[in-house]
Design a binder for these strands. Structure first.
Length: 417
DNA sequence: AGTGATCCGCGAACCACAGATGGGT
DNA sequence: GCACCCATCTGTGGTTCGCGGATCA
């Protein structure tokens, strides 16, 4: 199943560029990603040795193969022997790393030709490995994508910025981002669902997090595959086991560990629209796993196969119509953070608060009021169409042409035929 | 415990048509 | 740039149907 380089079409592809969704050989990778500063930001990783279609995120030391999530699950999710295999995560990289740097990053990988493009390395900068970056992007700006060099999925973020209208660097890497996968160590010695300690305790104390679901704002993924890295069908696995409710339940548990961070996980609908929800931990799957093993140390191998979504979210506020206005959305205290494009990056210090006390209380008050009065009724966008539909005659509920026989006349209020 | 039948709830589909939208002249 | 024409798309509500989960024998 060897895959040829998408660029030259001759050599075997080794590198997968997530931003371009392209498979490249090493030399073409250098050529393509040394072209300009933006291309240097593309996050790349190895290809899966098994399927050769998905980016690898883990290296099985025993078998000396690089595996994507699915293949890892297939190979290591079944037999007890395979589960015991020691595995290493495969880091993504950006920039234009030299062979030596690649070798340092991937010591198992022996195919690096010497780097000849010295200029490239003098460009934007050397390779940056997404070590601790995006997992933490909300809570720890110093580790997040605030540093351009650590941008994990600049494409998705660019989309978000273009939609929101700023380049705020808002790090909504809510889904278990690439780096979540990359940085989460896979072997059993590594914990596990760390929710880097940035959950704003004040916010949650007021119940803002309890069932905060931004119901007023539609958030639409521009490209489902790109954003989640898995198909719609696969997405079902995210919540299969315990339902979406589990996402909320362990809030306290996680908070007790002071390891939570404010993140949003998408609830994918059939149309690809997603409503954001807070997750307690750094990825939804992790939360799922937590619930399935309350009080236990969770072997990360348990959640790894669960089709982690990766990549950052891009948002569009498609739900906004002409009948809406910004204030409607700002009324919901927390959601306004998104609308206003303010990066919800909380200072790391425990004493810090996201909002000044007064405005924060005000926001909380508004949120609670809105929560009480909010309605989930259908909104009519075109009253004239509703008026027409209301008086239109039907047969078995279906509209019929004017003049044809009908069995339901809304105006008559009685069935006729 | 496993299997099949039944019930129930939910969501998609269907229909016609006015109005919105976009491209071409 | 503006006006006009035309084709296409969108959204509206009541009913039906199919699917999946729950329950029971």
């Amino acid at each position: 199943m060897s895959h040829l380089c998408d660029f030259c079409g001759e050599k075997r592809s080794v590198i997968y560029c997530r931003s371009d969704a392209a498979a490249l050989c090493l030399s073409c990778d250098r050529i393509v990603h040394s072209a300009n500063a933006l291309s240097r930001r593309h996050s790349r990783t190895l290809f899966c040795d098994r399927c050769s279609t998905q980016p690898a995120f883990v290296r099985c030391i025993e078998e000396s193969v690089s595996l994507c999530q699915n293949c890892d699950w297939n190979e290591h999710g079944g037999s007890a022997v395979a589960k015991g295999h020691k595995r290493e995560t495969i880091n993504c990289y950006i920039g234009c790393p030299s062979a030596a740097e690649l070798s340092r990053m991937w010591p198992f990988f022996k195919e690096f030709p010497p780097t000849e493009d010295a200029d490239c390395e003098q460009g934007l900068g050397l390779m940056t490995i997404d070590e601790n970056s995006v997992t933490n992007c909300w809570g720890h700006p110093e580790n997040g994508i605030s540093g351009a060099g650590k941008l994990n999925n600049p494409g998705a973020l660019d989309k978000f910025d273009s939609l929101v209208g700023s380049s705020s660097g808002l790090a909504i890497c809510s889904m278990p981002c690439t780096a979540d996968l990359v940085t989460g160590s896979v072997d059993s010695t590594t914990p596990k669902l760390s929710c880097p300690g940035t959950k704003d305790s004040e916010l949650c104390k007021d119940g803002l997090c309890d069932d905060f679901n931004l119901d007023d704002v539609d958030l639409t993924f521009q490209n489902y595959e790109e954003l989640f890295g898995l198909s719609h069908n696969q997405t079902g696995h995210l919540f299969d086991d315990h339902g979406i409710d589990v996402i909320f339940d362990p809030w306290d548990t996680c908070a007790a560990n002071s390891n939570c961070q404010d993140e949003f996980v998408g609830e994918a609908s059939s149309e690809g629209q997603v409503k954001p929800m807070p997750t307690t931990c750094s990825n939804a799957v992790s939360a799922d796993s937590v619930m399935s093993n309350p009080g236990q140390n969770v072997d990360s191998s348990m959640f790894l196969p669960a089709r982690q979504a990766h990549s950052c979210l891009s948002f569009s506020f498609s739900g906004l119509t002409g009948e809406s206005n910004a204030r409607d959305y700002q009324d919901c205290g927390v959601s306004s953070m998104l609308l206003m494009s303010e990066p919800p990056v909380f200072p790391a210090g425990p004493e810090s608060s996201m909002l000044p006390t007064a405005s924060r209380d005000s926001a909380v008050m508004r949120y609670k009021e809105k929560k009480k009065t909010r309605k989930f009724e259908k909104k009519i966008r075109y009253a004239s169409r509703k008026a027409m539909a209301d008086v239109r005659r039907r047969v078995k509920g279906r509209f019929v042409k004017a003049g044809e026989a009908y069995d339901y006349d809304p105006l008559a209020k009685t069935r006729s035929c």
